[in-house]
Simulated scan of single mutants.
Amino acid sequence: MSDSQKFPFIRAMSNMVQTQNDDRVAISGRSLPCHVVGVKGQIVTVQFDMLPDGTQYPQITIPIATFPYIRFPIQKGDKGVTVAADVSLRGISGLGTGIASNSFTASLTPLFFVPLSSAGWTAVDPDKIVLYGPTGAILKTADEKSSVTVEPGKITEKADAIHMEAKDIYLKGIIHLNGTIVQDADQMSGTTATLLGPLNVKDDVTAGEVSLLNHGHDVKNVQGGSSTITSQKPNGG
């Protein structure tokens, strides 16, 4: 009896196709839980959180799912999941070279990292977006000419001009004014200022052309002795 009679051709072809499919699945990308063990910029090295099942799960270095406009402060220990693309991502992630193709790809090549939320996180206002990092946060323009940096106990704003507009602006605390103070007349109306003293002024104060420390008064109806008279308004003399 020939081999073809012992093992029918159709069955042999079916087995061959099944074997190829199994091989394809074996090398396809795997979406698995993992945690971060290394960080370099927006590239992470992750360790898979899988029970030993006869499969080796080595640490791999992969990109984070993000944009250049948002840089996540990923830390060691952060948990997430690997997500598999259909082809290699090494070219577009900078971890390799070349352009992706539909050729067979090793199972760990087309992966990227996506963080996952946890029920154990601290509670925040569910109606507000919350942005923070371990030591603060930075909001900046691409040219870095304008930025807002939030750090523990300190907020720093940097720009050529900072505009604040509101019906009422409240400042509470010691106010440090380390620069020239000016008013733009064409931008203002009802500019009378009211200060509740005491007010201490070091050095001179000039109103118009009149110096507080060095000015004269025009006096009329001068009388001798200890008489008290009312002088005219100060002049620049």
Rank of each mutant, 00 (worst) to 15 (best):
A100E: 13
T55Q: 11
F113V: 00
T149A: 14
S231F: 03
M1W: 03
P110I: 07
A207E: 07
D127W: 02
G133A: 02
L116C: 08
I10H: 08
V201E: 06
G38L: 04
P152A: 09
N214V: 02
D160P: 04
G153M: 01
A100F: 05
F9E: 14
D204K: 12
N21M: 13
F7V: 13
K6T: 10
Q59K: 14
V130F: 03
Q183R: 13
Q187S: 12
T192M: 06
F112K: 03
D3N: 08
P63F: 07
R30V: 12
D22T: 11
V114W: 01
S146W: 02
G197H: 01
Q187M: 15
Q56L: 08
D53P: 02
A106P: 06
Q18M: 13
R11M: 09
A207T: 13
G237L: 12
R11W: 08
Y69V: 04
K40N: 15
F72N: 01
N200S: 12
P110L: 04
D204N: 15
S211E: 05
Q187H: 14
V81T: 15
L116Q: 08
F104H: 09
R71K: 15
L32G: 01
L212N: 06
K6Y: 01
A193W: 03
M16H: 10
F9V: 15
K79N: 06
S231R: 07
I129G: 10
P58V: 12
A85R: 13
Y57V: 03
S31H: 05
G236V: 00
V39N: 07
L111V: 07
S189Q: 06
K154N: 11
N102T: 08
L116R: 09
V114K: 05
E157H: 07
S4Y: 14
A85N: 15
L177G: 02
P234N: 09
F104Q: 14
D49V: 12
L131R: 04
D49R: 10
K167G: 12
G77W: 06
Q5G: 05
G153Y: 03
M164N: 03
D203E: 15
L95S: 12
S88Q: 02
I175E: 08
I70L: 14
F7R: 10
S147E: 14
T97W: 06
P33E: 09
Q187P: 00
D186L: 13
I155S: 05
F67M: 13
E209N: 15
I169D: 01
S226F: 00
Q187G: 09
S101M: 08
V87D: 04
N221Y: 04
T156K: 10
V44H: 02
G225F: 00
P134I: 03
V130S: 07
G237M: 10
S31A: 14
Y132R: 10
T105Q: 10
V39L: 13
K76C: 08
Y69E: 08
G197I: 02
N235R: 05
L171S: 05
P73C: 12
S28R: 12
P152W: 05
R30P: 07
K172L: 00
W121K: 03
V124T: 14
V81F: 07
G173P: 03
N102F: 11
V87I: 07
V130E: 02
I229K: 01
V83C: 13
P198V: 04
G80R: 06
N102P: 01
S28D: 13
V219K: 08
L95E: 10
S88H: 04
V210T: 14
G54D: 09
S14Y: 06
D186Y: 11
T192Y: 00
F48S: 05
Q232V: 01
T194I: 09
